[in-house]
Design a protein around this nucleic acid. Structure first.
Lengths: 221, 221
DNA sequence: GATACCATTTTGGTATACCAAATTGGTATC
DNA sequence: GATACCAATTTGGTATACCAAAATGGTATC
């Protein structure tokens, strides 16, 4: 594990965990002193985070990517395309063992589970489902999309009922995959993604003043 | 245009143009002397090319990505997902002017057009069609897929008849988009991509000995 | 030929100096 | 307050030195 990878991982965690907020300036010298690394691995880490869309350029300097409401809609279209393609492949597979693993992962979440874990499992459901497709490009696309959505999903106000509904939808998708019904799985997944996007955009839009009050950059376009 | 961007652009061109062949070793010091740059911008350029899938790691060193026949199949599935999603969005648009630009681009190719231009326009057709969708993620996915396919498509043995057929398919897709028939456009595009993949894989598989004789790394998995 | 050993060379990770470009903050003027 | 000017500071692009890890090639042995 090189220094570069360490810095990249830690920065990613700080950004996704909102310790460094959307829109914040990032300077190489700050990162160096923060992580006790020299400029070379820091710069390499920044380059990699840039390609993940977590940071971008502001003039010459670096900033953390803002929460972009318009982008959420575009990502939803993108994820629907790649996730549905993946779930069709997965539903055609004979080996169902991977589905059981995912179901167990979903079931590991209960009333005692911390919110962070619910958040992670909710995203991993999609990533792991795509992994079962065996298509590396679809997997990477889904993982990329979930990373880009991670902060927004975390900021979304969700109650127990919403979580319960999402989990029920997850299970329904798994059931369709398990029974080899690719059309049904695709339809359920499409609906799930669309519903998820609508609730997400509405929640963040309603709460944008509150988010901005916390210093987060929230942009509409 | 920084040194890093210059090195990245030139390296990409050399790789896509097969001046540096699939599987070849790349060392930072060679690149430095080749382009008269120092290590820092060279390393940054390498990192970026790595995320584009054009180069990868061989142990600690760098190599140009091989021609991977299995990957071609996976990319085809991926491109179908994202290109079809994009063409559906585009077919729903009221503004058809972008379609005319693409049609004109296709028509710019004739018997006098050098092969390089046919190659570029053939790929740009897909990229520009995706651009019309207005979805940045779909556009980037299509561009990424075409970049990864570029070398293989160049190496594919194609005669005038094959090119003519591909161009007719391009025009048919455009016509469906122009008439707002998203289903027809999606179907035609899917068929086009599947046909294209089958011919590509078959051509490269048939010619793999010849390619290896040229020093190109061609792998099946 | 195959294998082991070892000295030498190569290579990528890192640290740091230098410098131009950009930013910031203070001051003056209206 | 708004605007202009400018010195000081900050910041990222680049160059280069250092070093550990990896690779290479020669030699010895079976």
């Amino acid at each position: 594990m090189s220094q570069m990878q360490n810095v990249e991982r830690q920065l990613r965690e700080m950004i996704l965990g909102l310790e460094i907020g959307p829109g914040e300036r990032l300077t190489e010298r700050w990162i160096e002193s923060r992580f006790g690394a020299s400029r070379t691995p820091v710069r390499a880490a920044l380059l990699r985070l840039e390609t993940e869309g977590l940071i971008g350029r502001d003039g010459r300097g670096w900033t953390v990517a803002p929460i972009n409401l318009a982008e959420l809609g575009q990502i939803a279209v993108y994820r629907e395309a790649v996730e549905v393609a993946a779930v069709r492949l997965t539903a055609a597979l004979e080996d169902r063992s991977g589905i059981d693993v995912i179901a167990a992962m979903l079931d590991s979440c209960d009333a005692e589970t911390p919110r962070e874990e619910w958040h992670r499992v909710g995203m991993d459901f999609h990533i792991e489902l795509a992994r079962l497709s065996g298509n590396e490009f679809l997997l990477r696309a889904v993982r990329d999309a979930m990373t880009r959505l991670s902060r927004a999903r975390w900021l979304e106000v969700r109650d127990e009922k919403a979580l319960g509904r999402a989990w029920a939808e997850h299970h329904a998708i798994l059931a369709a995959v398990r029974s080899g019904d690719a059309e049904e799985a695709a339809r359920l997944l499409s609906d799930h993604i669309a519903g998820s996007r609508d609730r997400l955009v509405a929640s963040l839009h309603d709460d944008r003043r509150g988010l901005r009050a916390r210093g987060f950059a929230v942009v509409a376009a």
